[in-house]
Amino acid sequence: MIKEKDLLGLRNISTDEIDEILRNAVPMKDIIMRDIKKVPTLRGKSMATLFFENSTRTKSSFEIAAKYLSADCTNLAVSTSSVQKGETLIDTAITLEVMGIELFVMRHGASGAPHFLGRNTKARIINAGDGMNEHPTQGLLDMYTMKDKKGDLGNLTVTILGDVAHSRVARSNIWGLVKYGTKVRVVAPETLIPVELQRMGVEVYTDVDKALKGADVVNVLRLQKERQSSGLLPSLVEYNKFWGLTSKRVELLKDDAIIMHPGPMNRGVEIMPDVYEHPRCVVDEQVTNGVAVRMALLFMMLGGKSGDDIN
């Protein structure tokens, strides 16, 4: 059971809740693997995706999750310009709510936007990424993947490599993992490390080789190309040279370590093309797991009771 009305992040959610989501995702993954990928579990339930920022994979992942569970999903691509036209976030959501929508999947460029909407609507909200704050379903699918591949999260060393300052993926990963006692290392150039990051319970590195050494998992973050024009980085070439994940650097990890990336990838910037082709690179599986985790969440938040026969 998700205790709060809204799923806003992994910071304020218990390990019991996370465990249950990850547990429910297992049978969901089976459904995805079937020939007939449809169960009637959420038939007659209405939800909407509310994306104020561009997204292909997260949006389609939620949409597909909804379809496999037979929920009706409306997609609203809201450009931020509608805010300037005077239609506020609340107006948009309330309009859909009074049409019967029970759950919003929301992405927004401003940190805290789903928290703000959540206080102003009765519908439940799943945060699909808010500004630089959190991206909880990405965090959950990453944790699912790590657990699936490597076992008990508490025994793992996970290195998060890249632009953690601007990354909601990094924050959700950190909040989720530290709850389980995972040893989390973060590595980035000094200019991309936010202040007081250590207080989140992680080890902070600037030397990528030291940060990778002996890790069970490396989770590589996407680098926004505009960072080089805002005084944070000299060039993408230099970034790749000192912080890019190369095959040579992969050798520093444990022999059975896995390589992860939330996508979409900038090949030749944060990750080299041959690393993507590495046998222990699980990027595609992360995407499948994303659908499973989102199905589990929709099931739990749109009326499915725990212990219900998902099949």
């Binding site: 808010d130 500004g131 630089m132 704050n133 909601r168 202040v195 007081e196 207080r199 989140m200």
Partner: peptide
Amino acid sequence: HEGYYSTILGLKGIP
């Protein structure tokens, strides 16, 4: 304020 809370909330800080 640029500090722990700007870091965890992903809100842009003013040092």
